[in-house]
């Protein structure tokens, strides 16, 4: 089993090492998340009741945008310097290598968002229980964003205006994750159960884990032609 996952681990290790050499990029994405979420009260007004109501949606949309930011650089640098080509020609499974890259992307851009989300939730006056559910929903949901995003990043690799195009392709596909993720907190605030939302989010995560890396490799092979 561990032998089977070696390429996955190697790719994660490599991308984390690269991220460690580019600390500013990681911090920029996180800072972007914090600032976008903080701008909302400034645009809407400091009414605590209203803020509590929009908090889940605001944090989730912040997370979507922060993920998009990093996605543009998920494959582009490797494509430019030829390392992606070498990965595609590796005797190891290309799909597992790519899954490793997606995992590393989540660790670098998704996980920090999940960790800082409770702090921002406090700014929106969310009760402790909702903070827990929000964090849990982001923990289940942000990997989905990285997985679906990888498909989009692969499709737009090396294409004119790929950044904007990527958002156009990917954001509609993020809607289910957004609805179930933000909905979990809202349902709980409304006194309905949140478990349904989270289990649907979990099912979505499972489906994406199985299919997204594979579709991404197919798209990458097309892009490399």
């Amino acid at each position: 089993m561990s032998g089977f996952l070696t390429p996955f681990r190697q790719a994660v290790r490599r991308d984390l090492l690269l991220a460690a050499r580019h600390k500013t990029e990681v911090i920029t994405a996180l800072f972007f998340f914090v600032i976008v979420v903080n701008l909302l009260p400034l645009g809407i007004g400091p009414d605590a009741d209203l803020l509590r109501k929009i908090a889940p949606g605001a944090l989730w949309i912040g997370a979507l945008l922060a993920t998009l930011l990093g996605l543009q650089r998920l494959f582009a640098p490797d494509h430019q310097d030829g390392t992606l080509e070498q990965m595609a020609l590796s005797p190891q499974s290309f799909t597992l290598l790519i899954a490793g890259k997606i995992m590393a992307h989540w660790l670098v851009s998704g996980l920090p968002v999940v960790l800082i989300a409770p702090l921002l939730g406090v700014q929106f006056d969310l009760p402790a229980r909702s903070l827990g559910i929000l964090t849990l929903s982001l923990l289940l949901g942000t990997p989905i964003l990285s997985l679906i995003g990888a498909v989009g990043a692969a499709l737009t690799l090396g294409v004119r205006g790929s950044g904007v195009l990527l958002s156009l392709l990917i954001l509609p596909l993020y809607i289910p994750a957004l609805i179930f993720g933000a909905g979990a907190v809202e349902a709980d605030l409304a006194g309905l159960g949140f478990e349904g939302h989270l289990s649907l989010l979990g099912a979505l995560l499972l489906a994406c884990t199985v299919f997204a890396p594979w579709v991404t490799t197919v798209a990458l092979r097309v892009a490399l032609e």
Partner: peptide, 23 residues
């Protein structure tokens, strides 16, 4: 004809990592 090198890594790291990814 592309270098397949990561600018921010040393030659040693570059080669070790690509070998690792090739199994």
């Amino acid at each position: 004809h592309q270098g397949a090198l990561k600018e921010e890594l040393t030659p040693l790291e570059n080669l070790a990592l690509s070998l690792g990814m090739e199994g």
